[in-house]
Design a protein around this nucleic acid. Structure first.
Length: 624
RNA sequence: GCCCCUAUCGUCCAGCCUGGUCCAGGACAUCGGCCUUUCAAGCCGAAAACACGGGUUCAAAUCCCGUUGGGGGUACCA
């Protein structure tokens, strides 16, 4: 087996999830390779496990090509240098759990595979800490993460805090916490460090200044002393004459002595990119193909602001290069500024990364997603009881599709068969309805135990951040929790668990539990009207008769469980000469306080005999 | 205005590269039915799209050109 691809000096050899292609070049005998997992051994004797996407088996005949991926490393890891020879020594029948280390049985080697791996991609997400952590950041992080992880590369978080006027203190922490919440860990970042830090641009100003100097010395950039007022007037005039806006190049040809004079006088200046106006600048977008813009359309972009901070364009290019980012995956809004970046790479003489511009998430009206028209804060989704797995799954669905019709998949599954050719380019409308449905699907997929834990953790979280109470039900729920020992209480957990069969299919978000389940936690469900409790074509006197009969019948029960309650109430229907649904509806409103509730008999059992009877009794006092 | 990106059901995706299997497939939402003590969930079903106009071809959702629509950019914001 030949392993072609990543590796090299001092590199982390971990290729978990890396994808490639295998070709059987020689069988041990006439039999095809038939393995669920192959253990490959490198020349240095280290082992690597190889499997097929989705962990299915590898059944290969000589000459066939198959997609595959590296499962995980055994031993100390296998450095996968270009052209390194390795051999499949065993096919291992996998009978144990997916990530157990398989044992290597004795016997002849089953065959030889030739394996090619794509180059490992180093990607990054580079949010700006200017407010709440944005759903678009999560969207970009997801795809950057997938690209890095399926090629054995690295995923970096870089904080682009060069705009000091919009900087917000808490923002960076919220971003890192949100990425953690979503399960999108980064290999390098401001809080975890890494070999090419710092990962916060405000701490890299010396680096940028040095690079700007290099550009100025090489005449690829120039100092511009124009005032904000002059630029304003210039743009005004351009607009009046219907000219395309852009810097007019006044400072482009400043003589050295003029520059020296102003510098000596301390006149503030910016540094601008000297854009060649006589040619086109283009690049190959991995998703969209060739993009080309005429130099005349490209403004002499400011690279260094007068406050000494770099602009996005400069910092971005310098950092991507120094952090070894080789695939830039970012939003579509950057397409038109990419030629400026191309010019910078050229000016520095650096290797260009691959650019891949993802579509922009949209509001219902198709405009770029904004907080005026959509919840865009990741914190909002967390606060309102959306599950991170569901959000990630939903974001994956925006502009990406799996290999089949299935739309519900975990990050791990997505990684297992990730394929860039299934990424699309048109801007998806962010559809809260579909997110809600997906979230409900994930809630239903949880075990009752897991969901109970999530619910309690969610309430504890909301309490910890002092979230606005949900007027429909949080109050009673929280009172009840504190009365029963708090969030860590076994009593609380045990009761919530009991409600799971009634609640799990009825909530789409964790937040919906409290209002729907309020009848379990309320001391007094009063608040409904005579009209609410009275079925059509019946009157309040009739209702009270039913209430009384229900109360008395239930009081007779020796065992107060769902089955007994149901038998008891159904027995009432005939003599009362009411329909079953009418009788049940009266009991439902009286006991739960609402026309809509969890299943009646089960709820009564959970509420208990005394409280049920008391509520039935209380409803008797109702007046028209 | 100019430049760039983009175009399949209301929405998200599949099909397009490698024309015929597509009177276009799946999902959400909608509507109807079944189940049912309410509400959900579940199951079954319906309605719903190739933006338009020219080509190319025996044949176009698929290839080419144009138009129109949508979006983004046009800052000492990112």
């Amino acid at each position: 087996m030949q392993l072609i691809g990543p590796g090299g000096d001092g590199e982390d050899p971990c290729l978990h999830g890396a994808q490639g292609e295998a070709q059987v070049v020689a069988d041990a005998g006439a039999e095809p390779l038939d393995l669920e997992v192959a253990i490959a051994v490198g020349e240095d004797g280290q082992q690597v496990e190889i499997g097929t996407p989705g962990l299915g088996g590898l059944h290969a005949h000589a000459g066939e090509r198959h997609p595959l991926r590296i499962g995980h490393l055994t031993g100390n890891g296998l450095a996968l240098d270009q052209g390194r020879e390795a051999q499949v020594v065993r096919g291992v029948r996998r009978r144990h759990r997916p990530y157990d280390t398989p044992t290597v049985p004795s016997g002849p080697p089953p065959g030889i595979l030739e394996i090619s791996m794509p180059a490992p991609l180093v990607t990054r997400v580079a949010p700006s800490p200017t407010g709440d952590p944005h759903v678009g950041t999560a969207y970009m992080a997801l795809f950057n993460y997938c690209l890095a992880k399926t090629t054995g590369g690295r995923f970096i978080l870089r904080v682009e805090d060069t705009d000091r006027t919009r900087y917000q203190e808490d923002s960076e922490r919220q971003i890192t916490e949100s990425l953690t919440w979503l399960g999108l860990p980064y290999d390098e970042g401001p809080d975890v460090g890494g070999p090419n830090g710092p990962y916060r641009q405000s701490e890299r100003t010396d680096i940028y200044r040095a690079h700007v100097q290099e550009l100025v010395d090489g005449e690829k950039a120039y100092r511009c002393f124009c005032t904000a007022e002059r630029l304003q007037e210039m743009r005004h005039a351009q607009r009046a004459r219907k000219m395309p806006p852009g810097y007019d190049g006044l400072c482009r040809g400043l003589l050295p002595e003029e520059i020296e004079k102003r510098l000596a006088d301390g006149v503030p200046y910016v540094v601008r990119l000297r854009v060649p106006k006589d040619r086109k600048v283009g690049f190959e977008d991995a998703l969209r193909g060739k993009v080309e813009i005429d130099g005349k359309e490209i403004d002499d972009q400011v690279l260094l602001k007068s406050d000494g901070y770099p602009t996005y364009h400069l910092a971005n290019v310098v950092d991507d290069h120094m952090m070894e980012v080789n695939e830039v995956v970012r939003a579509e809004e950057w397409i038109t500024s990419t030629p400026k970046h191309v010019l910078l790479y050229e000016a520095f003489g650096w290797t260009m990364p691959t650019f891949r511009h993802m579509p922009l998430l949209r509001n219902k009206d198709k405009s770029k997603i904004s907080k005026r028209k959509n919840p865009t804060s990741l914190l909002w989704y967390k606060d309102h009881g959306y599950l991170p797995e569901a959000l990630v799954n939903f974001l994956a669905l925006m502009g990406y599709s799996g290999p089949d019709d299935n739309e519900i998949f975990s990050l791990e599954q997505m990684l297992a068969d990730f394929d860039t050719s299934r990424m699309s380019t048109s801007g998806p409308v962010f559809d809260m309805d579909k997110l809600g449905w997906l979230n409900g699907e994930y809630i239903r997929m949880d075990s009752e135990e897991a969901l109970a834990d999530r619910l309690i953790a969610h309430w504890a979280y909301r309490a910890s951040i002092g979230a606005e109470p949900n007027p429909e039900g949080d109050g009673p729920l929280y009172d009840w929790i504190f009365a029963n020992g708090g969030f860590a209480s076994e009593t609380v957990k045990a009761f919530i668990l009991k409600t799971m069969p009634l609640m799990q299919t009825r909530i789409k978000t964790l937040e919906e539990y409290a209002p729907l389940g309020r009848c379990f936690f309320l001391d007094d469900v009063a608040g409904f009207s005579a009209e609410d409790i009275t079925p059509k074509k019946r009157d309040l006197d009739g209702v009270k008769a039913v209430l009384k009969a229900t109360h008395d019948a239930l009081a007779e029960l020796t065992i107060f469980d769902t089955a007994s309650i149901e038998t008891c109430l159904r027995g009432l229907v005939e003599p009362l000469e009411w329909k079953a649904r009418e009788v049940f509806q009266v009991a439902r409103v009286a006991v739960t306080g609402s026309k809509i509730s969890p299943p009646l008999f089960e709820s009564m059992e959970l509420i208990g005999r005394d409280e049920t009877l008391a509520r039935l009794d209380a409803a008797l006092a109702l007046e028209a």
